[in-house]
Design a protein around this nucleic acid. Structure first.
Length: 446
RNA sequence: UCCUCAGUAGCUCAAUGGUAGAGCAUUCGGCUGUUAACCGAAGGGUUGUAGGUUCGAGUCCUACCUGAGGAGCCA
């Protein structure tokens, strides 16, 4: 086995990534990667090499190369790391359309056969795969999903950055519940102090929006709910924009525009990944503004006709969301929920004060709520009253009340769960694949 | 927290209460266009744990552990 120094890994042959191989047809190049799979047929072998940008099928014919090289490659083990050199050639028989005729290779680390790479090319169960998540990420499907996630995150930032929003991130340690609606993770914070992991940056966003006009925060959030479903993680990423001098209608317009932008960017830049995932592209192409807008009242009526047992005043269950979404080929917006099922800070509907000026965006194809938001209370007196009604400690919210004492204005915002959006865009049946290392009720490793 | 289902070779799964099996992976052999390559051979087991029923338990019973799906809660 060769011991490598950085200088050993350099050679005179230009190193390229597999993604750019098409531009180097006819040239001799070097790839730096890992052995993804190896097919042998006597005196001809087909090593498939991946480098993170793609997978390249290589060809090595015994009669045409040095015998030691042929034997080295022929006996190489799955996921061994290697540098491989050769000339690129267009080849319709190869997956990817190009092939590399091997002229040389250097093994960087050979996976020993006594302890072979655990994830074989056959099927595995979820427990095994997520126990080996650090290796699972190398597989084609997981690679495709995380590249879509990257595209989504980049598109989110591009959208807000080019529409006048300033990124102002919010703290992860928070002194109290933001909304008082969910269970939080408690953390020891030096002497005797308890803090919680944030469930939302929203209250802080309201402060930053009063300073910058339009802001967003984008980071991990935490829910200690013991939810055990395909739609839940205990740690997930959420983007939360907040706008001063804005209303419920602005929330609908911006969230609709954002979702359409995400869909178009993924269709534009991640077509290959969607193909790997066997995503029905037509379903994404149908996602165009305007999204249907219905009221909570209408939604309850529709659900009851469809056989749901929901009562007016109750919140939607997972099956209710699926029932609602099946009538549309694009996300549907449901607004004006009963205040009693919403957080304390929602502005009441002036025409029907028992309703909150909030909206949920429910993704198509049964993927559930991906956006929730609305208009915030800006009257100091009403906010104080709501805090009392929800038994929230006033002193912890003094700074929040200040936002109504010193130039309070109508303002609005929303939150979008990144993993749910990615699961929908990729057409996945479980949210756990949308994040590199999922944290769930019964999984904190690796 | 509740309901349902599952735990057998490294992995995915078989096995009427009666000798523990296959495919993949690994090793050896064969094959010049493979597409989860294929063909032949070999090695590989405390059947999740602890009890119980039985002449005999992977299989039946009890408890526990672990996981999956769903409910509630939520994005």
């Amino acid at each position: 086995m060769t011991v490598w120094r950085t200088s050993d890994l350099m050679s005179a042959i230009p190193r390229i990534t597999i993604a750019e191989a098409g531009r180097h047809a006819g040239e001799t190049v070097e790839l730096a990667g890992w052995l993804y799979n190896l097919r042998k047929s006597g005196k001809i072998i087909f090593p498939q090499v991946r480098d993170g940008s793609g997978i390249m099928q290589c060809v090595c014919v015994k009669a045409q190369v040095d015998e030691a090289l042929f034997e080295t490659l022929k006996n190489l083990t799955q996921e061994s790391s290697l540098l491989i050199r050769g000339s690129i050639r267009a080849e319709p028989r190869a997956p990817g359309g190009y092939e590399l005729d091997v002229t040389g290779a250097e093994v960087v680390q050979r996976v020993p056969e006594e302890r072979p790479y655990p994830i074989t090319p056959k099927e595995h169960g979820t427990e095994f795969l997520f126990d080996h998540r650090h290796l699972h990420l190398r597989s084609r499907r997981q690679h495709a999903i995380l590249r879509v996630r990257h595209e989504v995150i980049k598109a989110i930032r591009d959208y807000f950055d080019s529409n006048g929003f300033t990124l102002v991130d919010c703290p992860i340690f928070t002194p109290a519940a933001c909304e008082g609606t969910t269970t939080l993770f408690e953390v020891d914070y030096f002497e005797d102090e308890k803090v919680f992991l944030t469930q939302s940056g929203q209250l802080y966003n309201e402060a930053t929006a009063m300073a910058f006009g339009k802001t967003y925060c984008f980071g991990p959030t935490f829910r200690a709910e013991k939810s055990k479903t395909r739609r839940h993680l205990t740690e997930f990423w959420m983007v939360e924009p907040e706008m001063a001098y804005a209303t419920l209608d602005d929330v609908k317009r911006v969230s609709e525009e954002l979702i359409c932008f995400l869909v178009s960017r993924v269709l534009e830049n991640r077509q290959a990944e969607l193909t790997v995932l066997e995503r029905d592209i037509a379903k994404l192409e149908a996602v165009k503004a305007p999204f249907p807008r219905i009221s909570y009242d209408e939604a309850v009526e529709t659900l009851r006709k469809k056989g749901s047992e929901i009562e007016w005043g109750g919140d939607f269950g997972g099956t209710d969301e699926t029932l609602l979404s099946e009538d549309y080929d694009r996300p549907v917006m449901v607004d004006r929920f009963p205040s009693q099922i919403k957080a304390f800070y929602f502005e009441p509907d002036p025409e029907r004060p028992e309703l909150a000026l909030g909206v949920d965006v429910i993704a198509s194809e049964g993927y559930g709520e991906i956006v929730g938001g609305g208009q915030r209370i800006y009257s100091l007196e009403l906010l104080e009253q709501r805090l009392r009604e929800h038994n929230l400690p006033a002193e912890a919210f003094e700074w929040y009340l200040d936002l109504r004492r010193f130039g309070g204005v109508p303002h609005a915002g929303f939150g979008m769960g990144v993993e749910r959006a990615v699961a929908w865009l990729c057409g996945l049946d479980h949210i756990r694949e949308t994040i590199a290392f999922p944290r769930m009720l019964y999984r904190t490793r690796p």
